[in-house]
Design a protein around this nucleic acid. Sequence first.
DNA 1: CGACAACCGGACCGCTCGGTCCGCATGAAC
DNA 2: GTTCATGCGGACCGAGCGGTCCGGTTGTCG
Lengths: 213, 213
Amino acid sequence: MTSSNALPMRADARRNLERILQAAREAFAEGGMDVGVEEIARRAGVGKATFFRRFPTKEALVTALYEDFVDEVLGAIDQALAENADDPLGPLRAFLEHSMRTQAHNKAFFEAVAARYVPPVEMTDRIMDGVERVMEPARAAGLLRPGVERGDVSTATKMLGAAIRPMEGLLLCEAAWPRYLDVVLSGLVGDTPMPGVAADPCAMVREFSASSA
Amino acid sequence: MTSSNALPMRADARRNLERILQAAREAFAEGGMDVGVEEIARRAGVGKATFFRRFPTKEALVTALYEDFVDEVLGAIDQALAENADDPLGPLRAFLEHSMRTQAHNKAFFEAVAARYVPPVEMTDRIMDGVERVMEPARAAGLLRPGVERGDVSTATKMLGAAIRPMEGLLLCEAAWPRYLDVVLSGLVGDTPMPGVAADPCAMVREFSASSA
DNA sequence: CGACAACCGGACCGCTCGGTCCGCATGAAC
DNA sequence: GTTCATGCGGACCGAGCGGTCCGGTTGTCG
């Protein structure tokens, strides 16, 4: 879709687009979603107008980058499944670990998980399908508490994100991470049925998007 | 300190101060920390200048209100202890439930717990002392996993806050709350020693405040 | 090489927010 | 009732944001 028909972009334009994307990734990782467009353009060595020629709005850039995140998460899920074929709980644990690392090293992703940015519906669908896959071995082995659903795992990533960031901009030292991963994972494993009702992020995003439209 | 020596405030001034505080409480509850000063003044039926005559800065108002929060939390802890004298886990559970309710119904408090606002050192100390008290019965009864510390309970409140707010401004229906409370509480209860190291919020706030000064 | 379209970037706009200023109103003391 | 310090609020300021405009530049193609 980026370079389909019509004549291809001029060489400098294409190069600048790449630099903008890279600069945005770095800036968002460090400063979170609300780094200014000007800051991103400056890092890319480009004028603000050049930015807005590529992306009609800042939101459009965020969406473009979010697609990368989705791909990365899905890749991590595949890897977690491949590397833990012997341990039923392994993929889920590896996925949650990956989520903690990502949230720790990418402030914008953290905020996305904390849902300050509501992603397009189909991206949430893709992520949640992956979540379903990563928890399946544990469920099949009967390790998960009866009633644990994909929404619970999604919530677990949010809980872990909140756990490793005690204060604005301050990250818990990595030595503390296993502690909270262990707490959450212990809470999902066992025989006691889950109480209450589960919430499904896909349904929520759909509802939210519908109400916004 | 508010009305010590010097001559007392004029009657209208005192009345307006009270209205500002009340309006701020409501506005912060609904809109979070970043409702504008103008909005607060408008709700109080007062000019913006009147606001800044009472509080040198918006931050000063936040601090003043945060003291109320601390008192309320400590009150809830006392109540949780008093009403659950028979159940060793009861006070801790009641405290976490209270924390969920408070975070759900008060957006500003949520953000405070998420540490977008870093409170003064001594307030954190008072809160954490209360946390220590509320977990003591469970610890004494040997219900808590070896190594669980007050920082873990503090983290638990943050995790639960993240769990009940799936997306910006959207609250999970209350039917889902027990589910996540159960997950977290299950993760803190048992025989397995806690892995990793614990983090202490008091130390962190101290460190943070020192680095900011 | 020449010409043109695509592209560039800095100046600019409109908006919001925290915070200030100043002319006017008013409660309190006599 | 008179006086005046205290308090009042709307107009104002400067900074920073997302987004636009236009005169100059540059890649590309014949």
